[in-house]
Design a protein around this nucleic acid. Structure first.
Lengths: 215, 215
DNA sequence: GAAAGTTCTCAACAACTGTTGAGAACTAAA
DNA sequence: TTTAGTTCTCAACAGTTGTTGAGAACTTTC
């Protein structure tokens, strides 16, 4: 009945505590990898549980449902958009290269950072529901992180979405589809190819009538 | 036993023929739309059959299996890559615009043309098997259609794959994810934003050391 | 030792999946 | 009308899916 019956007057109680976080994290790790590789509907809870060396029902016990597990995977990623947003600070002449490089570091680098993003992208392309989730994430974060850096300018927002889509497209071609000429390139030479194009998208406003946006 | 027992010495025989092609085509149409919308594993034969106003087993009877139905949908699309390849013919100054416009006409236009492509892309992003299928398709067709137009140049092949990935990325952002600033733009203004970037990718070889490729 | 609390597994359910075989419903020829 | 051939549906299969509830196995406190 009463809460204060706790054994040693603390929140800690009797049972085993060591395995708890370890299994939970193993599940999250396995789910991250599988969602990134097979998409949402292509991944199964039994498969994830098997990878984590755990029974499927434990996954349910920790995360409630497959949808919540997926949400936990997405939430487990660090705030990548703010890292990309930081690339907007600096001289305009090298804007394309900074943004391109930041994108590759986030999407093409450490699995802990890239796998949740790839999972979200795969799921978003695979189902309308996840697409809404991704859309909202972009909508929120981009406004929060990029808003202060740029004046509210519909044209610049369009340019950012185009440039982002292009960069994501290259990552999709390289990592998800596996186009061989893209896979073979190392990151630096890819940046060499791509940065001028991104620069053309992002800084073209400076050549047109209404400008003074970025700097 | 013998084949020549056919009633009127023709290939035509007794049963109803009207429904045949109509149902087959209705199934193919429904499958095209659903694969494009929900991906491969997200689509069900029962759902496709329901859209076509037909029992699920009829789908099996016509196409044998879900995989073969998918292959039929992919094969039903016209040869889009050759249409894009044609855009490479012409003055180099407007190469970016021609290619960009051709891409949008193919990927963002008539459902009969764009839906098989979107279906293949969704499936390729959703599973490794379909990714191989897409990779092979690109490998074959690009070499066949673009090979004669360009000299065999690894650098140009890389540039083409990058530009294609970028354009596909924009289509994904616009059609599959639904980024609102991209959805709002009409095609012409999108081309206005994007063409210079594609031009930068495709014709940048002319500015670098080893050149003479495109012209 | 017993008791309490935690972590985890077993077995099963209900729904849905692709797929199959048998037989209706219909159409055209005899 | 009978017969043969075609188009299509019904009912069911075996497997997999997410999900659930009961109870083992283990750890700490008394």
């Amino acid at each position: 009945m009463s809460i204060d019956q706790a054994p040693s007057a603390r929140g800690l109680s009797t049972g085993p505590r060591l395995g708890s976080r370890a299994s939970r994290e193993a599940i999250l790790l396995a789910a991250r990898a599988r969602f990134a590789k097979d998409g949402f509907s292509g991944s199964t809870i039994r498969g994830i549980a098997g990878d984590a060396g755990v029974d499927a029902s434990l996954v349910m016990q920790y995360f409630g449902s497959k949808n919540e597990l997926f949400a936990a995977v997405i939430a487990s990623g660090p705030n990548t958009i703010s890292r990309i947003a930081e690339a907007f600070d600096g001289p305009e002449a090298s804007l394309g290269e900074r943004v391109t490089r930041a994108f590759f570091e986030v999407w093409d680098g450490d699995p802990g950072e890239s796998e949740p993003l790839q999972a979200l992208l795969r799921a978003a392309i695979g189902s309308e529901q996840a697409a809404t989730q991704l859309r909202d994430l972009i909508q929120e974060r981009v406004l929060v992180d990029l808003g202060p850096r740029l004046q509210h300018d519909a044209d610049m927002k369009t340019r950012i979405e185009i440039a982002s889509s292009m960069l994501v497209g290259v990552v999709v071609g390289r990592r998800l589809v596996g186009l061989d000429a893209l896979v073979r390139q190392d990151r630096d030479s890819l940046v060499g190819y791509i940065a001028p194009a991104i620069q053309a998208i992002l800084s073209a406003g400076a050549h047109s009538a209404q400008l003074g946006v970025v700097m």
